[in-house]
Design a protein around this nucleic acid. Sequence first.
DNA 1: TACTAACCTGTACG
DNA 2: ACGTACAGGTTAG
Length: 282
Amino acid sequence: MTDFHTSVNVYETINSGQVFLWENYKNTWFGIDGHDVICVKQEPFEIITFSKEIKDFFRDNDNLKKILKSISHDKTVKKAIKHYPGLRLTRQEPFQCCISFIVSANSNIPNIKTGLQKLCRKFGTRVQFKKREFSVFPRPNSLANATLHDLQSCGLGYRSKYVLDTSRAIASGEIDFDELKRSDYQTSRESLLKLPGIGGKVADCVMLFSLEKLEAFPLDTWITRILEKYYPNKFCMNKKTISKNGYEKIHQLILDHFGNFAGYSQQFLFKMERDLNEKKWL
DNA sequence: TACTAACCTGTACG
DNA sequence: ACGTACAGGTTAG
């Protein structure tokens, strides 16, 4: 806890596929987190929010020592941790996280970022912070009352309909993120899967990055590739696309191997393999 | 139940 | 140049 700030690597964490609405100016990172803006400096470490709220966006209260020990059960994870010792999971505002990963489906990071920025500029309120102007993320109501046409104009493609209908479900109270935070993994997952545009992978992202479910392990194309490459035959990843039932079966095997903090191991593995393949971040 | 194609939209390759 | 493939998946059949 006391030496946390010297151990987190802001650059690595921002550039690990968890967040999209972050910009770097000189030695400072600015990020949109729901209706708030966060400003982070690495050296010396400093984190300030527009709302003046204290946020542990980098999850400084996690017992990292215990968690890293818990997930260090094979040489691949150990290597990834050694390579990215400052990589952390983030604790994000759930609505933005939810919409972000719906938008991320079958897309790429530059596209996702552009689409989300357009959403903010069109539907979010503008604020001044540190002599800069930001458009924060729209509230559920704003998107729920948007027209499909306006969402389309943000370049979201066929995901526009998903964003609209999911926003409506959240604005109406049909889905309550605070409740999902208190629920267990399975209950939370089943609720999320009812929303349009949310399948197993997106549900895991939302749960891992914003609903306190550290056992969530998003199974995307990269992780699938990683499991085939480094854990041959261990997780039965012989298929190109994972069926709904297959997803749950594999997740159980994942928990058996990586443990209850499997989500952390996913982040280290994902970061390592994407860098190895020189994929773009923010 | 298990598997496939279709899907908006940029951008990276050939 | 200009077409084609592909990108953090989900959904409808």
